[in-house]
Structure formats: structure tokens, C-alpha cells
Design a binder for these strands. Structure first.
Length: 460
RNA sequence: GGUGGGAUAGCGAAGUGGCCCAACGCGCCUGCCUUGAGAGCAGGUGUCCUCACGGACCCCUGGGUUCAAAUCCCAGUCCCACCGCCA
């Protein structure tokens, strides 16, 4: 959330941010009008209340002095003031609520270094890593959803049966590989001074508002014990769409000590996203699902350090891909593609050679976003009441929050299943993961189970 | 789930209708004093409106009673203790 004062004083900047981020339904002029009217009523209400306070204290004195008649007249005057005050303040409260609602829907202002652009085609590629000596030719690679089925380590049909489309079973060596990845990520980040937290999975509406999921993106999250369209209040629960929500809100409405900063937390959790209308050939398989695992990195820092920290956080997130030997690239996200809450954002995209897509690299294959690394400046901190007390100032200030995925597990699974695929249809376990797999070097798969396997000719 | 206790400024803590524009202590900031530090003394230390003067608000949240609420009433949230149930 932006400061009211900031919006008042920089309407052009705010209008510009709304437009460049492609946010609809926000009318800055209307917000300014509401603010203007509210301030007028506020000052009238203050005046009335001041008068009432004076009359009220007179009543006390008059009664003490035994001047009953005058006291009675003052009481009547006070009642008149009360009625008028109520009228003025009711309207002022309405306007303030409205103002607050509107401000929650105003996006964060992009940092000056962010490239202007409309959509993903305007993002700027900063660099690529790991493309010098590729171990596969994309022409020979089987997509992960096919090889996952052949090895019987990914099962989307049974996931859909048990929970619905977009849910899956990961089985046998696949499940083991996924667990190894999680453990590996956590270990790498622990050495980068991250303190791990295991967060609650359901989070309340106040938390969702703190990180910026609510009110604008209610339709993207799963609700607990309520219908999707039902009204919600602060205490209602949602399934976390990312561990960013519980972890960023962990210190909500608190004041941290200057010495505490920077605070670096990592959290492993499943993530739940409705992903309405996002299904199609581009998202086939383990690429865009309703439930997936992720290790999330969250930083709380002093405002003056946040951009240095953003660069360092990018390095921390990409380290896991480097150690897995997976080729990837880093994008500087443009204004139109960066999202509502971010002031600046980098995306890390891993190379998945299995499906050849138009917007993939020249060698073939496709890019898969596995991490986005963002600086929110004080946007989340203001919504969530996250403050710290600088050493030489008397009052608390909003700190800056950053986060980065470290990283989304399923898409790394996809990249491994495709990039580390062998000619015989097996998958080599990346060296960095072998110690997490009891030394296992190759995934050879499992015999499918059930009569459907016989029908498909996979089993006798 | 039950019973009881609690929530007051950055922290600790007093305050049971008008003398509370919330005592006191600690921390922090500014000034005085000092060669410097410390001690001491004075002022300050949340939010909002106002160019300013100044004013309004803030005692967990939301309602209510009253001319007047930190204080009384109702509902809720969270914390603590004990009891019950439970992996």
C-alpha cells in the first residue's frame, strides 16, 4: 500500500504506475476526490468535537459550583453538538473506509531501473548460464509428462480422480527425487544464513492482505470452510498460495530492533493455487498445477539496503540451479509483467528441452519460470505493519521486504527429467542430489500397477 | 470443549464515570552542564487534519449506556492457568 500522503503529493507518479503495470479499475482522480472530501469532513468533525469537549468540561465545573440551570443549558447544547457530530463523522468514516479500500487496490510504484513494457515479450534478458556444454539435444528429448508416465513416477490421472484436475501423485523414485530436492535446497540456503521456519498452511485474510493477495486476487486462492464467493473477514482462512504469506506476516504489527536486521527466513511448504483458466498445451504435465512444493526465501531489511539485498538474493536463489548443473537465464521484468506488489522483480527461468516452444531459446526447448526474486520496498510492510526502529530516530519506520523462490520444485523436476534424460529412457540423478538419494545415480522407474497397464500393453 | 485470570504508549507497570489532554520506572532523542564520557537537570518520545497557529484521536477489536467512558454493559479476538478430549 502506498502512503496517502504520497498519493496526494505525487498523483502523476501513481497514475503512471497504474498505467505502466496495466492495472485496471483504479481511478486515481476519484481517490484524490474522496481524500479531499474526507479531509474537509475530518476537520469539521474535529472542530465540533473540540467544542463538545469544552462544553462537557464546563458541565463538570458548573455542577461543582451548583449552577444547575446553566449546567442544564450546557447539557442541551452538548446534545445538539453530539447529533451534528454523529452526522459528520458517520460520513467521514464511510469515506475513510472507501479510501482505504481503494488504496489497497493501487499497485506499487516500479523502481526507476525497471524496463517499461506491456507484457512478457518486453522483459529484458540479463544473462544465461550453463549453455556452453549441453548434455542433450532437444530433438531427442521426450517431454517430462511422457517419460514420467513411462517411468511411472508421475500420475496425473489418479491425482485427478482423487482430488480433481491439477492435482497429481508423485511416486517411487519421483517422490524420492522431489524430497531430495527439497532437502538440498534447504541445506544450500542454510549455508547462506537462512533460518528455516515451518509455517502454518492455512492463513487468515489479514495475512493475505498483508502480502497483497487480497483484496484483488481472492479468486486465485483456495478458501477453507467457505464457498469461493462468500464474503470474508480478517479471521477467515485460506490455503497459502506461497509460504511468502505466512513468513512475511510472521512479524506483522511488530517493531523489530535495528540489530535484528537483516532477518533471513526460508520456509518449505506446499502451495495451493486455483489457476483458473490457465490450462492448455503450454501447461501440460507438472508445469502449472493446483498444489506444488516450494522453498521460499524471505528477507526483512533496512530500506537503504534493499536493492543491494535484491542482487544478493538473486545470487542465493540461482545457486541451487548452478549446483544442479541446469541451464537457466535471468530476466529483468518489465513494468507490465512484474505484478501488483513489486517495485522490482527478476525471474529465473530454467531450460526444459522436452517441448519446443516459440519463445524458447534457439537451441530448442522452452523456458520455465522457477523463481521470481522481488523487492517490495515498503509496500507489504505498510500493509502488514512491519516496522523497525533505526538507531538514531525516535519513531519506528517501515522496513523493506524481499522474497525469492528458492525454488519451485515441480518445474525443477521437469527440467531434471528432460535435461538429465538418457537415450535408454532413464534419468540420471544430478550429482549434487545423489547423496540425498542414498547414492542412487539413475532413475529407472517402476512397473505400472493395475489392469489399465495391461490394456496399454505395458504389462502382461 | 469447560472454568477462571488477563490485554494500558517502544518495553514494564498504575489507574474501577468528570482533577486521565493516562501516574511511575526503563529505553531512546534534543537541549543545558562537562575537556570528554557518565551522572544530574529540562523538554520530548503513537496516528490524523492544518501553510501555520492549533485541533482531533489513541488504554485489544466492534457495538451500547451517559451531557461525559481506560473505567459501566454486550459481542468478539488473542494470551495465560487449570480441567476434559486427542495424534
Amino acid at each position: 500500500m502506498l502512503r496517502r500522503q504520497f498519493v496526494r503529493e505525487n498523483p502523476e507518479t501513481v497514475r503512471d504506475a497504474v498505467e505502466r503495470k496495466g492495472v485496471t479499475g483504479v481511478d486515481v482522480d476519484e481517490i484524490l476526490e474522496i481524500d479531499e472530501e474526507w479531509r474537509e469532513l475530518k476537520s469539521r468533525g474535529d472542530g465540533l468535537r473540540h467544542e463538545r469537549n469544552e462544553v462537557s468540561s464546563d458541565i463538570g465545573e458548573l455542577k461543582q459550583a451548583g449552577k444547575e440551570e446553566e449546567a442544564q443549558a450546557a447539557i442541551e447544547r452538548s446534545q445538539e453538538l453530539k447529533a451534528e457530530l454523529q452526522r459528520v463523522e458517520e460520513r467521514a468514516d464511510e469515506l475513510e473506509d472507501e479510501l482505504e479500500q481503494r488504496l489497497l487496490e493501487v499497485p506499487n510504484v516500479p523502481h526507476e531501473s525497471v524496463p517499461t513494457g506491456e507484457d512478457e515479450s518486453d522483459n529484458v534478458e540479463r544473462y544465461r548460464e550453463g549453455f556452453d556444454d549441453l548434455r542433450v539435444d532437444p530433438a531427442d528429448v521426450t517431454p517430462h509428462y511422457d517419460i514420467g508416465e513411462e517411468l511411472d513416477i508421475l500420475d496425473f490421472e489418479r491425482g485427478a480422480k482423487v482430488s480433481g484436475g491439477g492435482f497429481q501423485f508423485v511416486k517411487g523414485d519421483g517422490a524420492k527425487l522431489e524430497r531430495a530436492l527439497i532437502q538440498f535446497f534447504l541445506d544450500v540456503h542454510e549455508k547462506q544464513d537462512y533460518v528455516e521456519v515451518a509455517p502454518p498452511i492455512p492463513v487468515n485474510s489479514a495475512s493475505m492482505r498483508g502480502t497483497g493477495q487480497l483484496p484483488k486476487f481472492a479468486a486465485d486462492a483456495y478458501r477453507v470452510s467457505a464457498r469461493q464467493a462468500d464474503d470474508y473477514d480478517d479471521d477467515d482462512l485460506w490455503l497459502l498460495p506461497t509460504a511468502e504469506v505466512p513468513v512475511t506476516n510472521m512479524y506483522r504489527d511488530e517493531i523489530l530492533l535495528d540489530d535484528d536486521l537483516p532477518v533471513k527466513h526460508q520456509a518449505f511448504s506446499p502451495n495451493f493455487r486455483r489457476e483458473a483458466g490457465e490450462h492448455g498445451t503450454e501447461t501440460r504435465g507438472y508445469v502449472r498445477v493446483h498444489q506444488f512444493n516450494k522453498v521460499e526465501l524471505v528477507n526483512f531489511v533496512r530500506p537503504e539496503n534493499s536493492y543491494d539485498r535484491l542482487e544478493a538474493l538473486l545470487g542465493e536463489a540461482e545457486e541451487v540451479l548452478g549446483r544442479l548443473g541446469l541451464p537457466y537465464r535471468v530476466l529483468d521484468m518489465c513494468t507490465g509483467d512484474m505484478g501488483f506488489t513489486q517495485a522490482k522483480k527478476y525471474d529465473i527461468e530454467v531450460w526444459a528441452p522436452g517441448d519446443d516452444m516459440d519463445d524458447g531459446p534457439d537451441v530448442g526447448g522452452r523456458w520455465l519460470e522457477v523463481s521470481s526474486v522481488s523487492n517490495f520496498e515498503d509496500f507489504q510492510a505498510r500493509r502488514a505493519g512491519l516496522r523497525y526502529r533505526p538507531e538514531r530516530h525516535e519513531s519506528a519506520e517501515y522496513l523493506h521486504t524481499l522474497n525469492g523462490s528458492g525454488v519451485a520444485v515441480p518445474r525443477v523436476m521437469v527440467a531434471i527429467m528432460e535435461y538429465y534424460q538418457n537415450d535408454d529412457g532413464t534419468v540420471t540423478v544430478p550429482e549434487a542430489l545423489q547423496s540425498y538419494m542414498d547414492g542412487q545415480e539413475v532413475i529407472e522407474g517402476h512397473e505400472p500397477i493395475g489392469e489399465s497397464a495391461v490394456g496399454a500393453g505395458d504389462k502382461e
